[in-house]
Amino acid sequence: METRLKQQDTDTRRVCGKVKWFDPVKGFGFVLSDEGGPDILLHANVLRNFGQSSVADAARIEIAVQRTDRGVQAVEVYRIDPPEDMTGLPLADFEEIDPEVIRSAPLQPARVKWFDKGKGFGFANVFGKPDDIFLHVEVLRRSGLSELQPGEALAVRIIEGKRGLMATEVGAWESALSK
């Protein structure tokens, strides 16, 4: 019996676009290229290699794509920017805090304790510290994410809020190591 390998184009190219949708439960989603053309499959494994388990709908994304016999697929993520419409008014919890205090807070490596998208919040812990850090779903969206998984490593910018420690920004954990 002869085994045939599926032919695929090994040439990759960089593409910028917008996330059409991504479902972490299904493990995939699609990107719309700025150049037009067919939807680009974004698999959860490619996103995980970038250090994230989800991405917000309408987030700007820069990826490497490859044409396969099943269509165009993302093979690497280079950059994710939050959706453009998320830069509006600050969250109520941050209204009375000096924006410079928020911007100057360092990014710290943390791990998700739990997150419930339906409830709209969850908690994380900075490595080596027992304190819980509140994670609001709006902060995730403004950071270009849509959901977090328990145990997921990430970077958080933390401030002391009205109700305790709160994340003001969330990103790939590697960004906490380089800043």
Rank of each mutant, 00 (worst) to 15 (best):
I159S: 11
G120M: 10
H136W: 04
M166E: 10
W173L: 04
V112G: 01
F127Q: 08
P150K: 11
T168L: 08
G164H: 11
F115Y: 11
A155N: 03
V112R: 08
V170K: 08
W173Y: 12
L145R: 12
G120R: 04
G128A: 10
F134H: 13
D131N: 11
M166R: 15
R111F: 02
A155V: 00
F134I: 02
F115E: 07
E169P: 00
A110F: 04
K119M: 11
V126Q: 14
S146A: 14
L140P: 00
D116Y: 00
K119S: 06
F127C: 08
G144L: 13
L177C: 10
G164R: 14
D131I: 06
D131Y: 04
V156R: 08
G120N: 04
V137R: 14
W173G: 02
S146K: 07
V112Q: 07
W114G: 01
K113R: 15
L154W: 04
W173K: 09
G161K: 11
G171I: 00
I133C: 03
L177R: 10
K117C: 06
K119R: 13
A167W: 06
D131G: 01
L148W: 03
L148M: 14
K117Y: 02
F121D: 08
I158C: 02
E152D: 08
V139W: 14
R111A: 11
P150F: 10
G144N: 09
K119P: 00
W114S: 09
H136I: 03
K119Q: 07
M166H: 06
A153R: 12
N125I: 05
Q149Y: 04
F127G: 03
W114I: 02
L165R: 15
F115R: 02
G164F: 10
I133L: 08
D116S: 13
G161Y: 05
E152F: 07
D116K: 06
S143T: 07
F123H: 06
E147C: 05
E174Y: 14
P150N: 13
G144E: 12
A172I: 05
K113A: 11
K117E: 09
P150Q: 12
I133V: 15
G164C: 13
L145P: 00
L135C: 05
A172N: 05
M166F: 02
K117F: 05
K162W: 11
G122C: 04
L165D: 06
G161S: 15
E147H: 10
L135E: 01
F115P: 00
S143D: 11
V139N: 14
G144M: 12
S143P: 02
R157N: 02
S146G: 15
R141G: 02
L165Y: 09
G151F: 03
